[in-house]
Design a protein around this nucleic acid. Structure first.
Length: 230
DNA sequence: AAACATCTCAACCGCACCTAA
DNA sequence: CTTAGGTGCGGTTGAGATGTT
């Protein structure tokens, strides 16, 4: 949306005063209508810039700082599965933003996976070529499994069993796949629930626990007390 | 100490999609 | 149904930090 004085809009690094003002007005007006909020606040910023600053830096419960080994593991696995669907991946890592994950991937993990791909390609060409060419699906499946295992080796100390937990991650993620504001809120709520479950389950060391799945693949949660928070 | 190279990450851009009137 | 404004997403940029020569 264009409005009077657009040519005077500030760009670049945010100042502390701007952050404070933005926080104040988000509290007043909520996390919607960013253009209106930008105008009302008197910030010489576009609504889009305000939204980005809030989502990537000022929003409560954001984790700043180093990505943990577990988080890196999740990023690697989900990127391999989904490609560069950063926002989708970010929803599996509460407190992390799509921008942060995207940057982390580009600066830390891309090289690792490129190396991995190079190794896999070599491995593939030298050990599995015949089976693959003959359409041996077992060979492909075994290759995928071995490939998963070697990713674990790179991550130091994680077992193959940990790696296979991404099946649960995917189940949860598919359930939480979002495409609308309501669904986004649902996803956020799920993440909240997951975090809550984690807090309650101190014996689960990984920090990434997921809904309990019944044998027929239906989701089993006690949602009482949470539904109205959506 | 200075100059240059490389890395990191906050912020921007453009486009597609959503929503409400 | 149409359309304009708002939002979300992935790719890219560039300033500052850090490392190297």
């Amino acid at each position: 949306m264009q409005f009077q004085g657009d040519e005077e809009l500030r760009k670049g690094t945010w100042l502390e005063e701007e952050d404070e003002r933005l926080i104040t007005f988000v509290k007043l007006m909520g996390e919607r209508r960013w253009d209106a909020l930008a105008r009302a606040s008197g910030l010489k910023r576009s609504g889009k810039s305000c939204r980005l600053r809030w989502l990537n830096y000022l929003r409560p419960n954001l984790k700043h700082g180093h990505i943990s080994v577990e988080e890196e593991h999740v990023i690697l696995q989900l990127q391999e599965r989904w490609g560069n669907k950063w926002s989708k991946i970010a929803r599996r890592l509460p407190g992390r933003t799509d921008n942060e994950i995207k940057n982390y991937w580009r600066t830390h993990l891309r090289k690792k996976t490129q190396f991995q791909e190079g190794y896999s390609q070599y491995h593939l060409e030298n050990t599995k070529q015949d089976s693959f060419q003959n359409g041996d699906t077992d060979a492909r499946n075994n290759y995928n499994y071995e490939n998963q295992g070697s990713v674990c080796d790179d991550l130091g100390g994680l077992t193959d069993q940990d790696t296979n937990s991404t099946d649960a991650i995917e189940l949860s993620a598919e359930f939480a796949l979002t495409s609308s504001p309501y669904e986004t809120r649902l996803s956020d709520w799920i993440n909240t629930k997951i975090s809550y479950q984690d807090e309650c389950n101190s014996s689960f060391e990984s920090g990434f626990s997921f809904p309990n799945w019944t044998p027929d693949d239906s989701l089993s949660w006690d949602c009482s007390g949470f539904l109205w928070d959506i």
